[in-house]
């Protein structure tokens, strides 16, 4: 995997942002991507580079904001980092490009309360009546269990 080539291609695809690569163990390249560019970046990766699959999407609450990590694999690890603010945690769904992202995105919605724009399944937000995937049906809404401010044991409805 040629990191420089990817960076060049991304800079061409999204000219209003300068992409930068960072290396983390174990042999993983991390590229920070602004929210609005995500779809374009993924499309660019999908067409120009032999990306094999999306391994998963990690969502985490860093304490100050929400961070989504899209882990790709193509004979080497490539991770896209997207940062979302707490109060407007919404992001474009990738399911149109990568159907396999479906489950990972539902997990984001359920575990971290991220709103997925354009996800094919309705019911991924509370307004639409949450359609549960991992959490029990009687889970009290508005308490995504992986948000740090959510106390670990508070689950009684």
């Amino acid at each position: 995997m040629d990191t420089q080539a990817i960076l060049d291609a991304l800079n061409d695809a999204c000219p209003d942002h300068t992409f930068d690569a960072q290396a983390i163990p174990i042999d993983e390249t991390v590229i920070e991507v602004p929210v609005i560019c995500l779809k374009r970046v993924v499309a660019c990766l999908g067409s120009g580079f032999s990306i094999s699959h999306l391994s998963t999407i990690t969502g985490q609450d860093t304490g100050t904001e929400l961070e989504l990590l899209y882990h790709f694999w193509s004979k080497g690890g490539l991770t896209l980092r997207v940062v979302l603010p707490y109060d407007d945690a919404r992001i474009d769904s990738l399911t149109a490009v990568i159907p396999g992202a479906d489950f990972y995105e539902r997990e984001l919605a359920e575990m971290l309360g991220v709103r997925l724009e354009g996800h094919p399944r309705s019911g991924l937000t509370e307004a639409e009546g949450f359609e549960h995937f991992l959490l029990p049906e009687d889970w009290r809404p508005g308490r995504p269990p992986l948000r740090k401010k959510q106390p670990p044991k508070e689950n009684e409805s």
Binding site: S55, Q60, G100, D102, F103
Partner: peptide, 14 residues
């Protein structure tokens, strides 16, 4: 601070 696990069954279910 965070530990994320993804196992191969999840995409297989998809």
């Amino acid at each position: 601070a965070r530990l994320k696990i993804r196992t191969p069954t999840l995409p297989a279910l998809s």
